[in-house]
Design a protein around this nucleic acid. Structure first.
Lengths: 320, 320
DNA sequence: TATCCTTACGGAATTCGTAAGCATG
DNA sequence: CATGCTTACGAATTCCGTAAGGATA
């Protein structure tokens, strides 16, 4: 058993069982990968991959059990390297953060600025993507920390922690009817064409939920992945915008006016996620604490140590 | 990074930093081991072992962090092999059980007999030792399951589960004064020379505690590791025995009479332990359930999944 | 027929053990 | 001076990539 065999197996799963692709990912030859996998199967005495003729098609029953162990093993190997680097220089290295546009644009800048002052030697890598992509970057080991409001739950391999709460605002051009007559109701709002986030982005689900519960079918005319695009179309008079309150700045967005909408839509919680079982650099904890002061190193480490579905043990004892 | 390097590091810690001994354990040459360790240190960029001149003396600060990761990694590698074997043949393999004399002699035989009937192809390995040795056999990977009444707590790397409760009995020759006058008190008992278990064995601590709480200093004239020895000396009239109730059989121990002592000493709980993070064969779960029916596979797996000191996470969230 | 995995083979790199060297208690 | 780690070197093994072969959509 060696690491190259294990890497080949992990990568084969990730690449959809295409060994040619695996070889490219691991910078080696395709026959090499084929051999690595077969040798591991021989050593363990089982077949990990289901084959249709010569082609790999999926995992066998044993494979489904083994692959998670392989993943954990390689994760620990990575942890070893990370731990080494931590002792070489606590203040030098790389930190990869995956975040949605909203977070990268409005929530992260302060934390990033503070972090860079404290750790000028750390290369900060900011990846942007949909919540799903954020989760996958974490799972693939491309990102150390993920930040998003939606879709981070439902990955048992990720540990998620609440960072902060926020609400939506309605943005409209000056002299819009909604500015008069007090806080608007969902009914009044639904009378206008709506411009808001794509499904799966920045609290969109809470917006849909609110309208659905009220029995309303709003006319969503434009959707976008970020508030900047939404605001642009609102300025053009295409409709009424619904964005995260944090995304509205009275100074910058002078052509627009914001109406607080926290009475209409459920409160959103932005969450931070890390891969379960991963070892974080010291400065990663520092970044997290800059971003969400309640998430101290101790809190994050506790959450990382917690096992999947951990519950109280039964201390049932039979009498002899 | 390769497995031989990691094995060398783990074994070096276990062998008290004597690389010559490590080489013997790993069936290789001493310069080889030396090189493995040096190469891993070079690759990680840190020194794992503290050196006095050319001699290894202990772990460095980084070493103390890295070694537990190495142990987990090698544990996962072992899990991989175990998982493989499980799929090769569910009913064939080896099961190593470490137990104290009391358990091996009185509690285990029924479970062992039942187990052998169900799994005739499994080689059963029964190691005997002190509770401390039981714990160390688990930690060293020599035993899969450990069973003892004392000293299994206090090893964070072990998961312990309660199996059954039991109490002590007093054993005396026929016509002994303690047989008359109702259930004896601690005071009356302390008036006789006592023969019981060694410190650290089979509920001895509860015996000492009871006397100490009553302000009594019993005259313990003989101690032994097992009830058979104790009973032998009681038969010889050397004193009054205190043994686990389970160890007394009216038929076999005809020269003796037993007096229930559950009113005098605290109830004992025999515990089963497995190494945290280890993967057990299916038949290991079966054995555990034969031994302690309350410990179903689900219960044991839940306990294994629980992390060290797992507690509820704080869901404290700051407001944006 | 193009894609994808396996088998075969030869060269290169790695690995490992023996022997010698050196420091320490 | 015995124990224990390191260095040096040569042989054996292992590893890996190229080239050819065969199966499948």
């Amino acid at each position: 058993m060696n690491f190259q065999q294990l890497r080949s197996v992990r990568e084969a799963v990730r690449c959809g069982f295409n060994l040619t692709e695996v070889a490219a990912m691991l910078y080696t030859s395709q026959p090499g990968v084929s051999r690595q996998i077969r040798e591991l199967e021989d050593e363990l005495g089982i077949t990990i991959f289901a084959r249709a003729g010569k082609r790999l098609t999926g995992l066998t029953e044993p494979g489904r059990v083994l692959v998670p162990i392989v993943e954990r093993l390689l994760q620990e190997a990575e942890n070893l390297r990370v731990a080494g680097r931590e002792f070489v220089d606590r203040a030098e290295g790389t930190l990869s953060i995956a975040a949605t546009h909203s977070q990268a644009r409005y929530a992260l800048p302060h934390a990033v600025r503070d972090f860079r002052q404290h750790y000028p030697q750390v290369t900060l890598n900011l990846h942007q993507g949909s919540p799903k992509q954020v989760a996958e970057m974490l799972l693939g080991g491309e990102a150390d920390i993920g930040i998003a409001t939606e879709a981070l739950a439902g990955y048992p391999q990720l540990v998620t922690l609440p960072c902060y709460r926020w609400t939506h605002s309605i943005v409209v051009p000056h002299d819009h009817p909604l500015l008069h007559g007090g806080p608007p109701s969902l009914e009044r709002l639904a009378a206008f064409p709506i411009i808001t986030y794509d499904r799966g982005y920045t609290g969109r689900s809470h917006i849909d939920d609110a309208f659905a519960r009220a029995g309303l079918r709003p006319d969503v005319v434009i959707t976008a992945m970020d508030a900047d695009v939404i605001k642009t179309y609102v300025e053009l008079g295409m409709g009424v915008g619904i964005v995260a309150s944090i995304a509205v700045d009275p100074e910058r967005d002078r052509p627009l006016q914001a109406i607080d909408a926290r009475h209409l839509f459920e409160i959103n919680v932005t969450r931070l996620a890390v891969r379960r079982g991963s070892l974080l650099r010291g400065y990663a904890f520092a970044f997290i604490e800059h971003f969400a002061p309640s998430l101290t190193r101790a809190v994050v480490e506790d959450a990382l140590a917690l096992a999947i579905g951990a519950e109280a043990t039964t201390e049932a004892v039979t009498s002899a």
